[in-house]
């Protein structure tokens, strides 16, 4: 294989890699926007009993338990 052919093959491979990388970059773009959208909201968690048996002690004062 001549030097010219090898150079042409390498250039083609490099081009293909660049195109592929570009495509991947475009695919990842929406993922980058997701945290930005989430950051528009401040999420505060509620932790408590909404169902089930809450009571280790009396029905009126489980917060002591």
């Amino acid at each position: 294989m001549s030097f010219k052919k090898i150079s042409a093959l390498l250039l083609t491979a490099a081009f293909a890699l660049t195109v592929t990388a570009g495509c991947k970059k475009k695919e990842e773009a929406p993922k980058a926007e997701a945290p930005k959208a989430a950051a528009d909201t401040i999420k505060i968690g509620f932790l408590g009993a909404l169902t089930g048996d809450t009571l280790p002690c009396s029905a009126n004062r489980p917060w002591k338990g």
Binding site: D40, T41, K43, F46, L47, G48, A49, L50, P62
Partner: peptide, 16 residues
């Protein structure tokens, strides 16, 4: 707050 809305996310621990 700081231009952001607050969202409450519920977590039911069922008293357990």
């Amino acid at each position: 707050i700081l231009g952001k809305k607050i969202e409450i996310v519920e977590a039911d621990n069922r008293g357990d």
